[in-house]
Every structure is written in C-alpha cells, then in structure tokens.
Design a binder for these strands. Structure first.
Lengths: 205, 205, 205, 205
DNA sequence: CATGAATGAGTGTTCATTCAT
DNA sequence: AATGAATGAACACTCATTCAT
C-alpha cells in the first residue's frame, strides 16, 4: 500500500515487519498529538519526537507530511473495512434484519473503540476527496454483495445499487451519530436499536 | 493583477454594509481558492489578493486565519438553516410525508447550488467540533418543533428527540450523498425520491 | 533586470530606490560573508542578519538563494562593463596600442578595487554557464566595435571577430592573473606593461 | 537499479587496485551527475547510488564530500599535467614556435576530450584557491623549464619567470576559450592556429 | 479606515555522516 | 572491507501577523 516515494534513491526495507512497526509508531504518535492539540499544531519534527524516531526516519517511510495523514485515514478505513467484512460474512445466511443489525454493530464497534479519534479523523484531519470516494466504492461493493441474497425483498436486482447506496450512507451517518452525537438522554444501546430499525425500514421502503 | 472592483461598488451605504461587502468578498475569494487548489494552499495574503483587498483589510474583519474558515462555515450553515426553516414553515400544516419531502428538497437545494463547495466544506475545511455541534443543535431544535405536530404517529412525545436526531442525521447524510455520491446510473430526481421514502420509513419505524 | 520572481503574489516596490538600497545591502552582506568564511558557509538567514534586514525581506527581492549569487555576478559584470565602456570611449580615436593599454588598465582597475572579491567570484561563487556566456557576448560586441577602426591593421574586417575573441579572452585572463597570480618578484606596474605588450603583439600577429 | 558490475571486475588484483577502481567509479559517477543536474544537486548518497557502491564505501575512500570534488579536480589536473609534460618533452629540442604549438595542442586535447566536463569543472565545481594555486605553480615550473632553452630570444634569463607566467595564463585561457567559446563562424583548427600565433607573438614581444 | 512592506518565528525537508551488522 | 538504515543538525523558505504611513 505504501508507494516507493518520490525519491529515486529510496530502497526497500530489509525487514518488512520493522518498517511496519515504525510506520505504526509514527501513526500512533500522530493520533496522540492530534488528541492533545489538534491538527494545526502537528509538526513533522513533533511527530518524529513523539514516535521516538528521528525525523529522517519519518521521511524514510513517508514522502511528505500529507502522506502521513493519508496513511492514518487509510489505516482507519482498513479497520472499518475488516470489521464490516467480518460482520457480513457472519450474517451471510441470516435474515436481512440480522445483517443490518450486525453492520450497525460493526460501525459502532469501529467508532466506539476510539470515539475521539473517529471524531477527529472525521472533522479535523483533511481527507482528500479521492480517498473518501475510493473507500465508499469499496464499501458499496461489499454492501451490494451482502444485500444480493435479499434482492427480492428489496425491489429486485435492479434496485440493489440504490439500496446499497442508501444503506451505506445511512450506516455511516448513523454509526457516527449514534456514538458521537446522540441526545444526552438516550443510551447507546437504545440509540443503536432505533437506528437499526430505521435503516432496516429505510431500505425496505 | 489588481482588479478595479474597488471603486465601483463603494459609496452611499453606511459602514455596516460596506463591511458586509468586504467580508463577503473575502469569503468568496476563499471559496475560489479552495476550489482552485485546496485548503493547504490557502494563505492570508493569497486571500487578500484574490478578494481584491489589502491584507490589512482582511485583518480588519477577521482576528486571524481560523476565523475566516469559521465564518465560511457559518455562512453556509446559515444558508442551509434559512432554507430548512422556510421549508418547515411551508409544510407546517401538511402531512409528515410532505414535511420530509420538503426537507429533503431543501437539503438538496442547499448542496446542488454549489456541490463542489459543499464537498470541500465537508471534507477539507477544518470544522472545529464546537461549530458543528452548535449547528446540529440548532437543526435539532428546528426539527423537533417541526415533528411535534406528528408526535403521536412517531411513538409519542417522549420519542420526539430521538426521531429528530434520526431525521437530522439521515437528512444530512442522504442530502450530501444524493447530490455528491449517488450511483452513476441513478438520476437526481429518483435518488431524491427514494431517499425521501427511506427517511420517512426510517423515522416512522 | 530583476525578474518578478516565481510567486504570483509579488508586487512591485513603491520606491524604486528603497528596493535598490535593500538589494545592495544584501549583496554587500553576501560579499562580507563570502570573504569571512566562503560560499559553503553562507545561509540565507545569515545573509539577512548581516544585511540588517529580515529574512522575509530577502525573499521579497530574491526568489531563492541562487538568485542572490546570480545578482552578485551580474553586479560585478556590470561594473566591469561600465569601466571598459568608458575606457573604450576614452581611447576611441587613439592608436591601437593606447586602446589595449586602456583596456588592460580597466581590467586591472576592476579587479584591484577588490582583488579578494574578484578571486572569490571567480573561483567560489557558482556562476552558471549561461550568465558567463551572456557576459562574454556583450564584451565581445564591445570589443569588436572598439577594434573596428583598426581593422586594416588587424588583417581586415573579416578577421575582426577572431581578433575581438582573442583580445577579450587574453584581457580577461591576464587582467585576473596580473592582479591575483603574478610572480612575487614582479610589480603590478611592470606585469601590466608586459601583459599589455603581449596582448598587443598577440592580436597584431 | 543496482548494477551487476560488482562481481565481474573484482578478483585477482591486490587491494591497492580495488581501491583505485572504486575511487574511479565514484569520480566518474560524480561527473555523470554533474552533467545531468549540476553541482548543487549532487548528494553523497546520490553519488554512491550512481557509482553502484554503498554510501559507506564512499566514506571509506573520501573523508567528506569536499574531498570528492578535490579529487576530481586533481585527477583532471594530473591529466592535463601529463599531457603537457609529454608535449614539452616532445618539442624539447625544437624551435619555440613548435613548443607553443604543441602546448596549445595539448591544452585543446585535454579539453576537447570532454569539453562539457572542462566547462563544469571550471565554472561549477568549487575549486578551493589552494588547489588552483598549487596547480598553477606546478605548471609554471614546467613552463619555465620548457622556456629556458629559448631564454635569449625571450629577453634573457631574468625575464623567464614573467614569460612563463604570461605563457601559462594565455595557454589556459585560450585553450579553454578556443574549445568552448570561439565565435560560431570559426573552426577549431583555425582558432587554434591563430591562438598559437597570438601566444607566440605575445611572449616574444 | 485602508494599505502593503516588513517581520521573524516556525516549518517541512534534506543530506552529510555514523556505526551496528 | 562493505553495507545501508538511522540519525539529527542545519537549511531554505513560508506565511500569519503587525504597524507606520
């Protein structure tokens, strides 16, 4: 996933895992700094220090500062992807209701693990449009396949694309909202249940 | 490079309005720059240049760079607010279905006017958590009042908050998505119709 | 002579002379630093400090570090140019011997004024080939015109180009050498006299 | 990117020669980089890469970056030295005219082999004053010895130093100029012939 | 109020050099 | 001897902000 970077002089790493460790150390450091003081306060030297590596090593793995943020988003997206894929395979043979419920679970799981990070990633860290687009495509494919067995209930194969589109966007929106912005008086459990019901009704409408 | 615009529009009106014009010129310039080259390429001097005012004047109206972005968001939010308020009052006495339909219309109207800007505002321009929170509160109040007449159909007064929460987030998400990310094969009209149906079913579930 | 620099935001200076002063302050500072510690020790911040201006101002007048060195060379070349032009006009109607003698005088004058600088400019400060080429062209034109009245003595008009070429390069080389590298036992006066004789004989050969 | 050259040429010869090969590989790499993108773009890591050796090996043979450039100049100077020494010995017993002609030949031979390199070495690669001085001393000695047999024709033994000084500088200047900067309309042969005549006349004056 | 030249702290990035393997 | 990953001091350059005019 990492590109060979702009310089022609960059060579491949000897140990794949060492590199992975360093990259993760850097990304984790960015998260810490992000929480402590926001994007605009983040500097590459600060990242290096917080990650416990030299600034030179940061530039060994990332061509520039932007790439670090991109990688952070990518890592997050991959996690969500993985979770949703698992949830889908787990409820592959079950009823539609279970599928939606599991997906909602997954979405919430992904954002409950580190709600602050999820919020920051969403609102502060610049996520170039392309990346987001690519992600929503991948997700869309995933959901279309997951909905396929329930096609007849959803208005036929011809409408699958639209259903997956609605499902994806509602999941994402309500997944975030339920964790981060639900009314104070409402519990996570209850909000989740209602959101699930709403989404289910929505795509079956 | 300097444009003549300066002397043409300035006369008559009291300072209040002159200020307003300058502020708008600045915000419009920011939008232009944003579209041309992204947030990270925006500089205060660049803004002044693009707005046809001096950098000093920019600082007359905004305490610092951040404030410019905040104002940009606020202006956008106010527009959305105004549109939604109108839509709500227009369908105050109608059925729930009409209300949701009108709200969806409003949301799409707000984003169709300048979809690129809507996307940029959402993904690139840092929107400090507070501002977003405040907006969603105002929107939430608006929607709660709009839903109040339909309380019995929505599970009683006790559930109004939750319904407004679900409605607000689905509106926002699908409003954006329908304009910016709908499957290529689907028309705006049709996507809108289906999204409206989905939301309606969702909050009635 | 100064180009508008790479940024689109650069504006023209209000007072031509203020700019000139600052530019000269910067170039003089570079010379001081050059003498004190060599090219490789020169930093843009060091230049700003030594010139008594802010680093920002340096970048107001020069697009980058290289441009400062280029300007330094240009200023030197212009000085030499001016001196030689004067010498040529002073001996326009005199014999060839006087012309060569005056030119040698001029060359030496140009390098005696600040021999250390002349040596540094020649050996340390990178002078991109183009600049040098352009200068030698200008000089070549100058010399060709100066030699024109003596054409018959120099083998005819057809050979003027070649004569000017030989003259220019010998002048430059011996001008430098006489000031900077003459044998210790030889006085400047005497070296100059002999060099002049040599050049004269050379172009008349 | 890594070339196989390594294992092919290395065997047999003692370490002395292995070192010599590596050093030459490095210097040749520098020349290539120099031509491709100028001094300021040269980095030690880039040199190692281009030479097909590790950066560690570069530092095995050169204490620092400067030393690489010094070595490059030295290698060039040695070549010129060797050529001139040969030319001098070849025309030791001939007339002065032949000597000068042969020297000019040598100078041109040295620069015609790689004119681009000659120009770069002269204008771009920083040649610390000491090195240049040392070279011109060695050259001066050489020329003084070569001129000694012709002392009477050159104004006596007392003037030999001055004659050698003039000869050396004219040779160097016209040698460069004839190859790199002669007027477009003039052939190398003709320019060389005229330059030789000029120099001869110059030192005999 | 407007202007825009001047400021300089702070930033991203490079690259000569080291040293454990 | 050779390697090349790691280092981090140092640098060129930017740009938000100020303030004299």
């Amino acid at each position: 996933m990492r590109k060979p970077a702009k310089s022609a002089f960059r060579r491949r790493r000897p140990t794949q895992s060492r590199a992975h460790e360093t990259v993760n150390a850097i990304l984790d450091a960015v998260i810490r700094l992000l929480k402590r003081s926001g994007v605009s306060a983040i500097t590459t030297n600060g990242i290096a220090e917080a990650a416990g590596v030299s600034i030179g090593s940061v530039y060994q793995y990332f061509p520039d500062k932007r790439a670090i943020f991109v990688a952070l988003h990518e890592r997050h997206i991959e996690q969500v992807d993985r979770i949703l894929e698992r949830k889908i395979s787990e409820s592959a043979s079950g009823p539609l209701k279970q599928l939606v419920s599991e997906l909602m679970d997954g979405m919430i799981e992904a954002h409950t693990f580190d709600p602050e990070l999820a919020a920051l990633l969403d609102s502060e860290v610049p996520h170039r449009a392309d990346g987001a687009k690519e992600f929503s495509c991948r997700l869309h494919e995933l959901l279309r396949k997951a909905l396929a067995p329930h096609a007849e209930r959803l208005g036929g194969t011809g409408k699958l694309d639209l259903r997956a589109f609605l499902l994806g966007n509602m999941l994402d929106a309500l997944g975030h909202a339920v964790v981060l912005r639900r009314p104070r008086a409402v519990s996570l459990r209850y909000a989740k249940m209602e959101a699930t019901k709403a989404i289910l009704a929505g795509i079956e409408s």
